[in-house]
Design a protein around this nucleic acid. Sequence first.
DNA 1: CCATAAACGAGACGGTACGTCTTGTCTTTCT
DNA 2: AGAAAGACAAGACGTACCGTCTCGTTTATGG
Lengths: 221, 221, 221, 221
Amino acid sequence: MAAQKSAQSAQKPSGQTDHPAPNATRRSEKSRRAIYDAALALVADVGYPRTTIEGIAARAGVGKQTIYRWWSSKAEVLMEAFLDLGEQAAQAAGQEPYVIPDTGDLAADLKAVLRATIDQMTDPHFAAPARALAAEGLVNEPLSREYVAKLMEPSFQLYVDRLRAAQEAGEVRPDIDPRIALELFVSPLAQRWLQHTGPISYEYTDTLVDYALHGLAPRAR
Amino acid sequence: MAAQKSAQSAQKPSGQTDHPAPNATRRSEKSRRAIYDAALALVADVGYPRTTIEGIAARAGVGKQTIYRWWSSKAEVLMEAFLDLGEQAAQAAGQEPYVIPDTGDLAADLKAVLRATIDQMTDPHFAAPARALAAEGLVNEPLSREYVAKLMEPSFQLYVDRLRAAQEAGEVRPDIDPRIALELFVSPLAQRWLQHTGPISYEYTDTLVDYALHGLAPRAR
Amino acid sequence: MAAQKSAQSAQKPSGQTDHPAPNATRRSEKSRRAIYDAALALVADVGYPRTTIEGIAARAGVGKQTIYRWWSSKAEVLMEAFLDLGEQAAQAAGQEPYVIPDTGDLAADLKAVLRATIDQMTDPHFAAPARALAAEGLVNEPLSREYVAKLMEPSFQLYVDRLRAAQEAGEVRPDIDPRIALELFVSPLAQRWLQHTGPISYEYTDTLVDYALHGLAPRAR
Amino acid sequence: MAAQKSAQSAQKPSGQTDHPAPNATRRSEKSRRAIYDAALALVADVGYPRTTIEGIAARAGVGKQTIYRWWSSKAEVLMEAFLDLGEQAAQAAGQEPYVIPDTGDLAADLKAVLRATIDQMTDPHFAAPARALAAEGLVNEPLSREYVAKLMEPSFQLYVDRLRAAQEAGEVRPDIDPRIALELFVSPLAQRWLQHTGPISYEYTDTLVDYALHGLAPRAR
DNA sequence: CCATAAACGAGACGGTACGTCTTGTCTTTCT
DNA sequence: AGAAAGACAAGACGTACCGTCTCGTTTATGG
C-alpha cells in the first residue's frame, strides 16, 4: 500500500481500434505531466465518478486524443498518475524509504508501520485516487490485477521480509506462512478504511498487532 | 439534483425534484419484483458498469419513471434487490439459518462458517451484486454506510455472539474485543475475494482461524 | 408499437442506426421551430460549412439527439427549415401567390417574374440557405432530387403553365416543349447566380427573354 | 466547360502562418504529381466530402505538411489537380483542340460541341472533380471566381468567338451579345447536369440549339 | 565534393465536431 | 393517481480530421 516501483517503460496501447501504435519516443512529456496532475486534481476535487476524460483533457489543456492515444480508460490514466505520484514522493523523500524497520521488537515495528499507513489513508492526496482505483478494480479484474501487482504486492513483500526476519529471530513461529500472517493485521485495517466498517485509530491497529501476535485463545498452561 | 434526505426508513423518495411524494400504498408489487429481477439479472449478465437504469427498465418492462419514482440511483435499486434476494433465500431456507453453530469447538465452528462464506462468494448469483455494491460503496459513502449496516453488521454480530460464548466457555481470552477479533479472519478473506490479492480455499480460511486463535508468536517459553 | 400518423407528408428516418422510429405525435413543436430558426440563422450568420449540428442544437436550446431523432444530416434540417420558411412566407402573403401573371403579353410577364426572382436572390434570408442546399445537392444526389422535386419543379411548373397558355394564344410555336423552353431564360440566371459567371440585373433577364423568344438568328426574309 | 488553360507557375502560399515562404525551385515534382493523382482518385472513389487532406497525404505517400506548404485547402489542391489533368489531356490530344469548328453551319457546329460536352460530363474522371469544385464554389466565392476564370471563361470565349464569326457570316443578328447568347444553350445543359433538373441527351442539346437560334415565338407575321 | 539548409515523410499535438449513449425530467395516454 | 412509453435537455463517450508543430532523413545546390 506504500511502495510504488513501476517499470518505467511498459507501454500499454490496449483497447483502442488498432491504430498503428504511437511512437513513444515522440511523446510529449509536458502533456503527460499535465494529464497526471489534472487526473489527480479532479479525482480529489469532484470524485472519481464525476471525473471524465473530457474533464481531464480540458483541465490539462490537452486534446482528448492525446489521452486516448496513450491510455485506454480513465482508470488507466489514474493508475499511472498514482504510480507516478508514488515515484515522485519516493524521490522527494530520498533514500531507502521502503523497508519496515527492524529494531528487534516485531510488535513495535509493525505498530509503527501501521500507524504510518493510517497517516497515508488520512491524506486526501493519497486517499482519493487509491480509493477510486480500488473501487474500479472491484468490478474490472484486469485493472485489479495491475493494482495489486504494482501497488499492493510490493508493500506486502516488505511485511513478508520483516516477518521472515522475525522467524529467524525466534519472534514468530517457524511454521507460519508470512504471506498469510500479514493479512491478519493489514486486511482488517484495509477493510475498515475502504468499506467504513469501523473507525480507524492508532489504538485499533496496535490492538490488531497484539491480537495477531498472541492469538485470541488463552495461553497454554 | 435536489435535496438528499438520508435513509433511515424504508421508502426512499430522495433525489427527485419535489414531487408530491408517491403514495406507497398504490405501488405496483409486480413492477417492483420485475425491477429487482431485471437488476440482478443484468448485473450478472453484463456487469455492473454496463447495467443502466434504462436497461433495467427495458428488461423489467417498466417505464423509467417507475424506477426514478421509488429509487434514486441504480445502486439503490441493486441494494434493495440484493436485500430482497437475501430475504427470499432466508424464507426458502426455512428457520433460524442465521446463527453460527456452537459445538463447543470454536475453531471448528469458525472454519465451517468461513467455508460456507467461500461457497457464497463462488455463487455468481450472490457474488456479482455483492461485489458491485461494494465497489459503488467505496466511492459513495452513504451507500457504503447502508451496505455495512444492512448487510455486513448483521453478519458480524453473529461472530460477536459466538466469540462471546467462547469467552464464557474459556476458549477466548476475556480481555479480547470480539468486534475486532472477528476481523482477523473475516477481513483477510474479504480482501482476497474483493481485491484478488490471493487465492481463496478452505485450507486458507482454516489457516486464518488457526493463526488468529493461536497467534503468530511462539507459545512456550 | 409506434403508429405513424403524421398528416402532411414524407417522413425520412433514413441513415441512423435502426432505432424504433420515433413517435411523431409526441414531437415537440417548440423544438422544431427553434431548430428551424437556428439553422437558418446560422447559415446566414456564419455560412453553411461552419454551420454544425452542435451549433444548431446549442442555438436552439435543444439537445443534439433531438436533431438526430428527426433528421439525418444538417442538409436535411436546412432543407425542411427552408421549405417551412417558404410555407410561412406563402401564408403571410395570403392567397394564390404562386402563379405567373397572364396579361396577354408573354414577354412582359416573364420579365416581371424574372425580376422578382432576382429580388429573391438578393435577399440574404432566402439566398443563403438556397445556395447552401444547392451546393450540398451537387455532391449528394438524393438531397438534390429532393431539392429539385420540392423547390424547383413547382416553380418550373408555373412557367410550363404560362408557356402553354401562350401557345394557345399563339404567342409561342405549338411544337415547342415548354419544359425545355423555360430553361432558356431560367437556367442562365440560375447559373450566373450560383456560379458567379456573370453579373445579374433586370436588364440581363430582360435580354434573356428577348433572345429566347425571338431567337439569335435573323428573322426570315 | 472544356478548355483548361492555366497559368503555369502560380504559387499560392496563402493562408499559413507567416513561414518564410517556401522555395518553389526546390519543390518535389514527384510529390506534386502524387498529390494530384491521389486527390483525383479519392474524389472519384469516395466522393468529395469524404476526401480529406489526411487521406490525400496518406494515399500519395506524402506528409501532411507538404500539402499545407503548397496549398491552403483541399479545394485548392483539387483545383490544381483538375487544371493539371486538363493540361495533360491537352498535351496528349496534341494540337489545337480548343476551338469550336466553323463549318459554316452554326447550328451543326454548336450541336457537335454540346454533344462533346455531354460526353465529358459522362466521363467520371472528369465529372467527379468538376462537380466537386462547382459544389465548393457555390459556398466559397473566391474559389468560385478562380473556377470560373480558369475553367469556364476560356470555354465561353470559344463560343463567343464562334458566335461573332456567325454574326459576320449573317447567321446571327448583329445586335446580339454573344456572351449572353451562349448561355441560352450552355446554361440549361449545365443546370441539368449539376442539379439533376432533367435528363441529358444529344436530342436535348440539339433541341436547345434549335430553340435558341430560332426563338420560341412564331416567325411569320 | 562536401556542407548546409530546404523540403520532405512521419506523426504527435491542441482542438472541434461528429454521431451515439445514458441520465434524470417531463408529458401524454391508458388503466 | 400510478404506470408504460418515450421525447426531451444535457453532456460524456470514443473517433475522425483539422491545421500546426516538431522530429530525423533526403536531396540538391553553392562555397
